[in-house]
């Protein structure tokens, strides 16, 4: 893809991002309840103090001005104060973000590592018992409500078998100095392999729960595209040359068959963001998703607004990357 095309696509992102910000802004502006009242809570303040607070928050200005103020502040990562934490929203979010990213990445790895081999196997053994089981499995995967599946896993592995922890990110006994916020990295940096293992154990159930729908979808995509590739002439030719079946599949077919899988994986990574709220709530995972859900009930709206905007922007960018990835991997597609 040429640089010009890429720039063109980047410019096309601007109205979408502006529109997304507008919706997030309107969402909060229309929320019933006076922000000043919510902020002040039970404290008694004088009308003068209230007016001053209103002026500080920019609430006395017209809507259009407030929107542009919101955008100007958002670009500088200034989302105001979190009423509940008494600190800037951006700080609170930055603190919780690594936990969410770590969980999402591990879920992505789990999904890719299971979906690709299963999808390839289902395609190679088309119509076998395994293929049918895989089809049923993928249907179950997209039909299972994540929050319920997570609870079933907790009941089985944490309560009944007692081999994995119920909730949290790491046990209280482990003390890991925070460097990156990613426990898997921080434990290694500290040279504490026991804590690394423990962090990994805490990740297993939430990552499986979060990755399950994605696994199901990626498996179907891999299977379908593998079947498609296996029908191509160049595969027949490779087989006719006398190459071993294994070599044809792994060296010739798989490379092309994975193109749709990679693109769909990029798109589906965005859907992990939504799943995070559910999974973090089920497993008491101290990430951004749980923070947002808690903030809704605390009416801590600036934080909800910032987080929804952050999620939406990440989602738009991920879709953009998926598009670009698809074109780069598949030169026949022109943007």
């Amino acid at each position: 893809m040429s640089l010009g095309k890429l720039l063109e696509r980047l410019i096309q992102l601007i109205p979408v991002l502006l529109g997304v910000s507008l919706i997030v802004f309107v969402m909060l502006a229309l929320t019933p309840g006076d922000p000043v009242q919510i902020m002040v809570g039970e404290q008694a303040i004088t009308p003068e103090q209230e007016a001053e607070l209103r002026r500080d928050l920019g609430l006395d200005r017209p809507m259009v001005e407030r929107f542009f103020l919101f955008i100007a502040n958002a670009v500088q990562f200034d989302f105001g104060q979190s009423f509940y934490h008494g600190r800037p929203v951006a700080d609170v979010i930055a603190e919780r973000l690594p936990a969410t990213i770590e969980l999402s990445l591990v879920a992505l790895i789990v999904a890719l590592a299971t979906a690709i081999p299963l999808g390839v196997l289902a395609a190679i053994r088309k119509n076998s018992i395994f293929d049918r089981l895989a089809t049923v499995g993928s249907l179950l995967g997209v039909s299972l409500p994540g929050f319920w599946f997570g609870i079933l896993l907790i009941m089985l592995f944490a309560v009944h078998l007692q081999i994995l922890p119920v909730s949290g990110r790491i046990g209280y006994a482990s003390e890991v100095p925070t460097v990156t916020g990613f426990l898997l990295i921080d434990t290694l940096l500290a040279g504490d392999f026991a804590a690394f293992g423990e962090a990994l154990r805490y990740l297993i159930l939430p990552a499986i729960t979060l990755g399950l729908p994605m696994t199901a979808i990626l498996m179907r995509v891999t299977r379908a595209s593998m079947l498609e590739v296996m029908r191509q002439d160049y595969i027949t030719f490779a087989e006719a040359k006398g190459l071993s079946h294994r070599r044809v599949i792994f060296r010739h077919a798989l490379k092309n068959a994975l193109i749709p899988t990679v693109s769909v994986a990029a798109i589906e990574t965005g859907s992990l963001l939504g799943g995070n709220m559910i999974v973090e709530t089920v497993f008491g995972w101290p990430g951004l998703g749980r923070l947002v859900v808690e903030s809704i009930f605390l009416r801590n709206y600036p934080l909800v607004q910032a987080a929804v905007l952050l999620y939406a922007i990440t989602y738009v960018l991920l879709n953009f990357v998926a598009d670009i990835l698809y074109t780069v991997l598949n030169p026949r597609v022109k943007l």
Binding site: G19, T31, M277, I278, Y311, A312, Y315, N319
Partner: peptide
């Protein structure tokens, strides 16, 4: 098309959660 693009810019559940937080 623009409205569609903007709405597609939100992860579904997060959009619904945001709206429910707003509307009650």
């Amino acid at each position: 098309g623009r409205i569609v693009d903007i709405l597609l810019g939100f992860p579904y559940l997060i959009f619904a959660i945001g709206l429910m937080a707003m509307m009650g």
